Simulated scan of single mutants.
Amino acid sequence: MSDDLVDHYGTDGFEDTRLRRSAHGRLEYLRTQELIRRHLPSAAGLRILDVGGATGIHAAWLAADGHKVHVVDPVPTHVSAARHLPGVTAQVGDARSLDVPATTYDVVMLMGPLYHLTSSTDRAQALSEARRVLRPGGLLVAAGISRYLSLLELGTTGRLTADLEPSLRTALSTGSYDGHVGFLPSHFHTADQLQSEIASAGFPTPTVYGVEGPTWPSLDVAGLPAFDTLVDAALRCARLVEQDPALINASAHFLAFTETARP
C-alpha cells in the first residue's frame, strides 16, 4: 500500500488542491470542517494526530484554530509540505505502526487510511493503533469513501458504459474499487460497514455522517462558476440527511466519530 501511495501521490501535484479544484471537493472541505468542529472538545490547544493527513489541508485550519497538530503520512513530499504550515509538525509514517507513545493524543484523525488500506486486517491494525495512542476519553475521527461514489459520478456525468458495469457491480457488492475512474485501488465502505469496523476494533459504536449529501454530483456538473450560488442549498441538504439511513450512502464520503472509554 505505502509504495503505491508514494508512487501515485509523489508524482501527482494535485493532492494539495484536491479539496479546492472541484465543486464537490469544496463541498467536502466545508462539511468536513463543520462536522469536525462540531465534535471537537471546546478547549483550545488539543493534541491532534492527523494520520494520512497528506499535505496538511485539514491540519492547517486546525492549527489556526489553536490546536497542536502532528501529521503522519507515508508520502515524503506530503510531509515536507505539511512541515511548512504554521503550527504543524509532520513525519513520514504508516497508520498500521505509528511511531507514537501510547495515550498521547486528545484526537486522532484517520482521513485516508481506511480507504487506502484494502485489506480488512490492515484497516483493523490502523484502528488499533489509533486507539492505542488516544488518551482515555479521546476522540477518533475516521473517514470512509462511499461504495456509491463511482456509480453516482459516472451516471451523472454520462460516462457510465456497459464496459464499466462489471467494475461497478464489484464495488457495490464488495467495496473493492479497482481504479476504473482514476485514483488508486481502494476499499469503499457503506456507512454501516464503517461503523461496524470501528466498533470491532474496540471503540464504542461510532456516529457516522454522510459528508456531502446527495447533491455533490450535480454541483460538479454545474461547475465551479456556479458553486457560490448553489453551495448554501447543498450544505443545508447535506445537514438534513446526514444520518438518514435512506440517503447517507449517497454522500461521496463518510465521517465517523467516537470516543475511547474513560477510566
Rank of each mutant, 00 (worst) to 15 (best):
G137C: 14
L154W: 03
P245C: 08
F188Y: 15
L85R: 04
H84R: 15
R21V: 12
L235Q: 15
L240V: 12
H70G: 01
D94M: 10
D122F: 05
K68N: 14
R132V: 04
G223S: 14
H70A: 11
A233W: 09
R147H: 05
F188T: 09
M1V: 09
E34F: 12
E129A: 04
H189Q: 13
I57A: 10
T170R: 15
P113K: 00
T174I: 13
A54D: 06
L154F: 07
D220G: 12
V92K: 02
G144K: 04
L30Q: 14
P263D: 10
H189S: 08
F183R: 10
L35F: 13
A261E: 14
F183G: 10
A162S: 14
Q195H: 11
Q33T: 12
H67K: 12
I57N: 07
L224P: 01
H78N: 14
G93R: 03
A261Q: 10
H253Q: 10
R123E: 12
A90W: 00
P206N: 06
G202S: 08
R47A: 13
L134F: 03
R96H: 08
V108E: 06
A60P: 02
A63K: 03
L172V: 11
T161D: 14
A261P: 00
G182N: 08
R147I: 03
S97I: 00
L140P: 02
S120K: 12
G138K: 00
M1I: 05
D228I: 06
I48E: 07
G53E: 03
Q193I: 04
R20H: 13
M1F: 10
F254P: 00
H24W: 13
A256T: 05
G93V: 09
L35R: 03
V221A: 14
A238H: 08
D232S: 15
P166L: 10
V231W: 04
D4L: 13
A54Y: 00
H253E: 06
Q195N: 09
S173A: 15
D12T: 05
L27M: 05
M111A: 10
A59N: 03
R147L: 04
E28H: 11
E153A: 11
